[in-house]
Simulated scan of single mutants.
Amino acid sequence: MAEDRLAALTAAGVSIWLDDLSRGRLVGGDLRRLIDDKHVVGVTSNPTTFAAALAHGEAYTPQIRELARRGATVEEAVRKLMVVHVQEACDLFRGVWEATDGVDGRVSLEVNPELAGSCEATVVEAVSLMRAVGRPNLYVKIPATAAGLPAITEALALGVDIKVTLIFSADRYREVMAAYLAGLERALDVGVLLSEVHSVASVFVSRVDAEVDKRLEEIGSDEALALRGMAGIANSRLAYQAFQETFAGTRWERLAARGARVQRPLWASTGVKNPAYPDTKYVTELAVTGTVNTMPEATLDAFTDHGSLRRADNSGAFVDRAGEDRETIDAIVAAGVDLAEVFMVLERDGIDRFARSWAELHETVRRSMNVAG
């Protein structure tokens, strides 16, 4: 049965999260159905999906009218709209959160992307969002920029559960995990129970393939073209190797002995960008115990219909292929792709996308409030 494919993925130790949240999903019962029937145990929101939901439906109209009647500013209205619908999602997932001891049942909300260049402003915003939502199963999303790294440490020490986003390279992922460990150590110093500190780290997959493939095609050699579609998986598995190396050794063991939890890897951007690739590619190839795969609904439906697990991969299987993955990355570099530039471009583009969506969101709310008024 189709449902069994998702059950098998869950049984392999992969947490299935949905990469979309809207009021329509909440009030129409769609999200409840996905929890009950398709093993979805978390959901992520971002300015892009929220702006799209607001622009293409009437689910938010009554609330916008009320905010306009009260004389709320556009900024106040945006904050209120986002907080309320995240609260509703948190309440829906509360049972999952309780059943998994806080591991799943999570809903994420992003800090203002315009603050990505400021550590201090990001921390203030993260604490403000945590207090505004007031739900224990909230993840505040902070991008893995240079300014975001110390903000992750500081926010964790202040009791904010963090979902780190926009990680593209294994090197940056190592820095993210170091920031997490530093946050745990700071939390321990101020008396926070480490068992209550949670975090996931989002490693992006298909965007890496899309950018690398574009450059390989521009190079155009047979060797370059043969490497298309290989960067995203190899890069992700090398990131997983970094995860295994980080959560070992004496530093981690000291924290684990005090109840600390690992910062789980989360595979993000797992919808294929190239229709020539299998539409379940980034689920099948990255099925490893103890990870999260946050999928757009099209990918979730594809796996429901025809997804497969060649084997329930464990961490050892991933590490065993690390040499092969390193050879793949080296071959891509040898073909002429500047991966350092690729990762820089992807990070900058990710921040720019969220900033554009943030501006679009404010403009959509402005227009709706004008009509309502």
Rank of each mutant, 00 (worst) to 15 (best):
S169Y: 07
T165Q: 03
S269K: 09
G105M: 06
V176P: 10
V283I: 14
L156V: 15
L346V: 10
R367V: 12
R186Y: 00
R172Q: 09
Q241H: 11
F50A: 07
K80A: 14
N112V: 09
R326N: 01
V197A: 11
R25H: 03
A146G: 01
R5S: 06
R254F: 01
T299L: 11
E98W: 02
C90W: 08
I35M: 15
H85A: 00
S128R: 14
D349W: 02
I16A: 01
T364L: 11
A256S: 13
A55K: 14
D20Y: 09
A89L: 05
N314G: 13
V208P: 11
D91F: 01
I351H: 06
V212K: 10
V365M: 08
H39D: 04
A201N: 08
R326W: 07
E245C: 04
I332C: 12
T44V: 05
A359R: 15
M130K: 15
E75Y: 04
R172D: 05
L158C: 09
L26V: 02
T48A: 15
Q241A: 14
R23S: 01
G159R: 05
F343H: 14
Y139M: 14
H85K: 03
Y173S: 09
F50D: 01
V164R: 04
L81I: 09
P47K: 08
G24F: 00
G24N: 07
T145Y: 06
R261S: 05
V107I: 12
K38P: 00
L309Q: 03
A126D: 08
S357F: 04
G57D: 02
G290N: 06
V160D: 08
G183I: 09
A340V: 06
L216A: 08
A7H: 06
G191T: 10
I64R: 05
E58W: 00
D20H: 13
L34H: 04
A51D: 10
L158F: 02
L286E: 12
V190R: 15
A12G: 03
H306I: 01
H362V: 06
L26C: 02
R25E: 06
V86Y: 03
W17F: 13
W358D: 13
T270Y: 10
W252T: 11
E66Q: 11
R131D: 13
D19P: 04
V272R: 11
V107P: 03
L184K: 08
A268T: 06
G134D: 10
L193R: 11
V86N: 05
V84Y: 02
D279M: 07
L255G: 03
A335E: 07
T250N: 11
A2K: 12
G95E: 15
T73S: 15
L193Y: 01
M1I: 01
D352A: 15
H362M: 12
R25S: 02
A7K: 14
A11I: 00
D213M: 08
A151D: 09
S308A: 12
M1S: 12
M82I: 00
V337H: 08
L138I: 13
H85C: 08
D279Q: 12
S236V: 07
R311E: 08
G71R: 02
L18M: 07
D4F: 02
G148M: 07
G24H: 04
A182G: 09
D20G: 01
M369G: 06
D161K: 13
E223V: 05
E120C: 04
R311W: 01
A99K: 10
R251E: 13
E120I: 07
R32C: 01
G232W: 09
L286W: 10
